[in-house]
């Protein structure tokens, strides 16, 4: 079963209450044919466990890597992905869309 955005935010709260370092990633803008709508969430903990999706798999790996830095230093980050990205062959969106993802730590 696919997790709903509700399940994800509830899990974020549970993970944090259990003492885990947690980052919340949110799709805040999309252009073209982006795979996941604005408002979609992905949560990541310090051991790279994750739940949810911001792109249906295309850029999750890169978001998780950035999320670990966010968990470490607490500074929110704005990430942008698209086919024009220089690392597109690695983490680009095959659909040709572009997305902007906001990553913040759950304090």
């Amino acid at each position: 079963m696919v997790s709903t955005e509700t399940d994800i935010l509830r899990a974020a709260e549970e993970w944090r209450r259990a003492g885990r370092g947690v980052a919340l990633a949110t799709v805040i803008e999309t252009w073209g044919s982006a795979p996941r709508p604005v408002g979609s969430h992905l949560i990541i903990d310090e051991d790279t466990n994750f739940l949810g999706s911001v792109s249906g798999g295309c850029v999750e790996g890169a978001v998780i890597t950035e999320a670990l830095d966010v968990i470490a230093d607490g500074k929110p980050r704005m990430l942008e992905f698209g086919v024009a990205d220089e690392t597109a062959w690695q983490v680009g969106l095959s659909c040709g869309g572009r997305i902007r993802v906001y990553v913040e730590r759950v304090e």
Partner: peptide, 14 residues
């Protein structure tokens, strides 16, 4: 996001 804020958001949803 502060945990309290996240918790309030989840409570409204519930």
């Amino acid at each position: 996001m502060r945990l309290g804020l996240l918790s309030d958001l989840n409570a409204e949803r519930a």
